[in-house]
Every structure is written in C-alpha cells, then in structure tokens.
Write a protein that binds this DNA or RNA. Structure first.
Lengths: 222, 222
DNA sequence: TTATTTTTGTTGTAAAAACAACAGAAATAT
DNA sequence: ATATTTCTGTTGTTTTTACAACAAAAATAA
C-alpha cells in the first residue's frame, strides 16, 4: 500500500492533502489497491456503486451497451482519474454504465460512506475531499456537455470536425493525438466505422485535415 | 429579498441550512434577485460565469447553437434548480452553453467566489454549500449520461423509445408528461421534427405507445 | 364568434448513413 | 522471415434521415 503513496498523492482527488493526512485518511477510508486484467469489468450497468475508484495504472473506459448490443464509449480514463464519483454522490443509484479495463490496471478503491459514519476525523477529511470531488465533477460535467456537442452534430463530417476542433481547442494546438483507434472513435461518436473512415479520407483529400493512425493535424481552424 | 426566503429555503442547494444561517449566508454571498423576461438570456456561450443562478420561478433551458445554426437543447430547468455550478467549480472556464429563459423568470444570483475570500464564516458556509453542490452535480452528471444514452441510439425510433422508457423508469409509471413540445423534443433528441412526428405516429399505430400533446403512455415495458 | 398564429401530422424526394463484403496495410506472433 | 491476426480504407446496396411543402388541428388573439 505505502509504495503507491507517491502515485496517490498526485491525483486531483487528494489535492491539497499533506502526507500524514493522506496516511490517516486512507486508513480511515479502508482504502486498498486492486489489480485488474485487461478486459476485466470494475463495475457493471445495474450495480449499485458505493466505492470510489482511483486509477493508478492502466486505461479504463466508461461504456454503455445499447439494447441492441451496440457499444457506446462515453469516455476513456487514465491514471489519476477517478471513477464512481457521481454514483457515490447520488447514493444508492444503479450505475447506468460499465467501467471496463482496456489494459491491465491498478486501482485504489475506497468507500466514501464508511468514513463519515465511523471515524472522528470525518469532517476534516470529508471537507477536503468533497471540495476536490466538486471540482472534479464540475470538470467532468463540462466534458460530458462537450461530448454531447460532438455527437449531436448532424452528419458524420460535422461530428468529426466538431470533435477534432474541440480537442484542438483544449490542447491549444492543431496537432492532436487521440486516444481511440478507428472503431473506438466510431463508438465514441456513435457512427459506423466504415462510413467514418470514408469521410476521413474525403476530409484528407479536400485538405481540411491530415492524419496517420491516431495522430491528426487540423489544417484550418474550423 | 426576504419575501423569497421561503422559496429559497426549499432549494436543494441550501438543503440542511437553518433560517438564521441562510440569512447570514445570502448577505455574505452578496445574493440578489433578478427578474427576466421570456426570451432573455442569462448567460451566453463564450462568457465566463462566476455566479450561481437559482431559479425561483419560470423555465430556463440550457441550449447550444451548432456552427450551422441548429439549436440543441441540453436540458430544461425549473424552480429549485440551479445553473452554473460546473462553470463556477472549474473556475474561469468559458460557458459552452446558453442559458435561455423560456418564460418570465425570477432568479437568485450569488457569487460563489466572493464569500471564500472576504467573509469569516467562509469555511462554515462553504462546507455546507459544497456538500450540496457535490450532490447536485453528481445527479446532473447522471442525467447527462442518460441524455447521451438517449441521443446515442441509432434510429429515430430507438431514440424515442429509449427516451420515453428512461423517463418512465425515473417516474416509475408508464404515463409520462414531457416538458417538450414536438419541436423541442426534436431539438433535444437531435432529430428532424417531421421525421419524428412520423415515427411517433407509427409507434402509435403499432400500439407501442399512445399520446396526446405532451402526455405519453407506454404500452409495453421496452 | 371569427380570424390569425402556432403546433402537429403527412407525404415525396434527395441526401446521408448503416451495413456487408472485401482488399490492403500494419502489427503481432511464430 | 513468414504466417497470422488486427486494423483501416473502399465500394455498392439498402435503409434511414433530413428537408421542403403543405394540410389539419389546436391554441391564441381580435
């Protein structure tokens, strides 16, 4: 456990917390580290989630299975990101998504509720934590609205251009490395992969973008 | 100002706060009430928002204009709902949405930052408030994911059925009154109104649903 | 009440998407 | 190095959608 402290300290969720505090806090939260294999599912649609999961290593995607078996990728998460905040915050709500490991992963797990009922330092810890949770959730909220923006566009072309220019705006550069392969990007934008590939080719031909694998260059600021 | 206290007290954002506390708190936050006319815009895409807006009366919709001029409705908000939480939480972020009054509206406005820097009771107030903000944001988060679920469906039919059954699940009844007219529902689901009307007719003919104006009945539990 | 405006439903047509099937390229395993 | 698997791009066909134009119904104003 202690060997992960350095990693844990860097996570936004524990921002502003001193080393000693962190130590007490993790004990108080009954925190433990669990390792997952690629493909493992951290939690499923329909499960009630009362833990917070902090990714220490690996890649996790938040997905949803449609009634007809199509996969929808909501977002991808990486070390320092945490999962389950909104579920924990709303208490006893069934998860409406799956959290799936895309690679072997290392995850810090702790129970958000336990502390508030058992431990004396509850208030102290909670206040610091909740402040961080609020910040993280607000960012996530903005990201979700951005995703809605991306997938709300009418045509495949518009979805691609909106997605790429949004990414470009965020990174403040017109050279973008996306975390998706083609199939995953299609699942993220809710479009057909082959139709998307076709549209990407057209955009390249027209000189609007260039790309190789998952590296894209936006030629114009659309 | 005082005449609105009863309304203000009922809002989730001030849950668990006593009357005297509320009084001090609102002073501390420099809160004031502003009335808007139908069609007024509370804030626009691109503006930096540092206030929290609590709706006391009226209807406000969170919208986005696409590059091509299409309106996208993200969500509709009503008395007791608050606006701007995620923007305030992320600090100095440009709003990526418009907040538009759909009717004459009454809104409590307060500056979230001001308190933390000026007032002595900052911690006390903030801790209570942030706890509430966290809860509200987590609910909103779940709603946004649900919206993503609705609009991610492949066909117009699937979007309609998913939306209606999600609403049905939430209200735990198969009789639903939706807050949208046809054009607004189309803008919410990002589809063409006439194509949607046509699909609704088909669903009615097939006996899957029934409806009149904005009241819907789900015949089967799809 | 009647006139006017707004909302909703219907239809045909053109555009776009999904789907399927496959070929070539790239990555991985042997 | 070669074989095998995975990923990406291309094409034709079918399905679905958007769009436009209009009719019917409902709501609102005069």
């Amino acid at each position: 456990m202690e060997k992960y402290y350095q990693k844990i300290k860097n996570a936004p969720i524990f921002y502003g917390i001193t080393d000693e505090e962190l130590d007490r806090m993790l004990k108080c939260f009954r925190a433990y580290v669990k390792s997952y294999k690629s493909g493992d599912i951290i939690f499923r649609q329909g499960e009630i989630v009362s833990n917070i999961y902090l990714i220490l290593d690996g890649e996790v995607s938040i997905e949803k299975d449609s009634y007809w078996g199509r996969r929808m990728i909501i977002q991808k998460l990486y070390p320092n990101n945490s999962i389950g905040l909104s579920l924990v915050g709303s208490k006893n709500v069934e998860s409406n998504v799956n959290a799936v490991c895309n690679s072997d992963a290392l995850v810090l797990i702790f129970n958000y509720e336990k502390c508030s009922t058992i431990c004396h330092n509850a208030c102290l810890h909670h206040n610091v934590l909740i402040r961080n949770l609020f910040k993280i959730l607000s960012k996530e909220n903005i990201q979700l609205v951005e995703k809605i923006d991306n997938i709300s566009q009418k045509t495949i072309r518009d979805k691609l251009l909106t997605y790429l220019s949004n990414e470009s705006l965020k990174s403040k550069t017109n050279i973008i490395e996306i975390p998706f392969n083609r199939q995953e990007l299609a699942d993220y934008l809710n479009i057909d992969r082959s139709a998307m590939s076709f549209e990407l080719s057209k955009l390249k031909q027209e000189g609007l973008i260039n790309y190789k694998k998952n590296k894209f260059v936006l030629k114009t600021n659309i």
